[in-house]
Amino acid sequence: MRIILLIGTLSFFSLTESFGQNEENQYLTSKGDLHLLGTISRSQLNEEPFSKWYNTVYESYSIDEERVEKVNEYYDEGVSVKIYLGTWCGDSKREVTRFLKIVDHSIMNMSNVELIGLDNRSGKMKQGPNREEDGLNIHRVPTFLFYKNGEEVGRIVEGPVSSLETDIAQIFAGLSPRPDYYLANYLLTQFGEESLDAVDTLITKNASYLKHYSKNEGELNTLGYVLMDAGKYDQAILAFRLNTLLYPESGNTFDSLGEAYLRVGDSALATTNYLKSLQLDAANENATKVLLAMLADKESR
């Protein structure tokens, strides 16, 4: 047992020595998985434990040479790319690695590509150690932001609309494709441009129309939790409430809205939404557990 513990201890110190002692830029999960935060160098992805998936994806990906020629044709040296990713995220592992291979087979300049690792721990969802994502409407990873002369000219969210090579070429050509999760991006834009009351009116009046732009109920559900972890509770509540309007048959949407109201201390609306969740899904153990805890707390006062 002591030998096993010693080996585990040595392994831990080996990992921390490989990536430095700054905990702000890395963390270990309860399962012992190491993840990176903030600015990531490409060389780090070539080291354990990341090299296992990085090298596998890199070697297996077949470049579309014809589309890469289009990337080269429209590429401008003034273009830079910021990639927000999670080393814990399967989509990030796949798409970021593929993007880097495309860089290697094109005239794109790697010095103009920045990798930023985001967190996935409770209370820090999709956040960088210095809030590098703040104000950029990052709600899914990976998110590729393309800039020209300091202005965003396109983005790829989670995955390409067509293929990475095609989407990159279109962005360079000024024909940026509409990224996935359009509704979440639209709602975030409204939060930045309109008052909460105006957004509230917008979603109430246009829910049936907005449904056409919703990928699935997970789109706004994820956005709501990202907003809550960022402390933007009023925005989170509106995102969750819109989700209940789009998916009124889903117990999960009401469960999430109940949690948001609970976090801001509105026990009445929290109870209403948890009860609605149970009405739609009697097997929702979380709603039952929370309601019983709220009842016990009330009786103890």
Rank of each mutant, 00 (worst) to 15 (best):
T222G: 13
L227R: 05
S195I: 00
H105N: 15
G192C: 00
F99P: 00
N216P: 01
N243V: 00
D229V: 03
H212W: 01
N149E: 15
S162A: 14
E69W: 03
V81A: 06
V71Y: 08
F99C: 03
T143P: 02
R131I: 01
N185K: 12
I203W: 02
L145K: 15
Y58V: 01
L85M: 15
E249K: 12
L34T: 09
F13N: 07
E47A: 13
R42A: 11
D297I: 03
I40H: 10
A260S: 11
W53P: 06
N46A: 14
E77N: 10
G32Q: 12
T204W: 05
R98K: 13
G128M: 06
F240R: 06
N137F: 04
E59D: 15
D229K: 06
A173K: 15
S62G: 09
L118M: 06
S51L: 11
K205C: 02
N284A: 08
E133M: 05
L196K: 04
Y75N: 02
V57T: 15
K298E: 14
E152L: 14
G224N: 08
T143I: 00
T204P: 01
Y58P: 00
E66M: 11
Y147C: 05
G218S: 10
G123A: 04
M294H: 03
S176A: 15
N109A: 07
R94C: 03
V153T: 10
A270L: 09
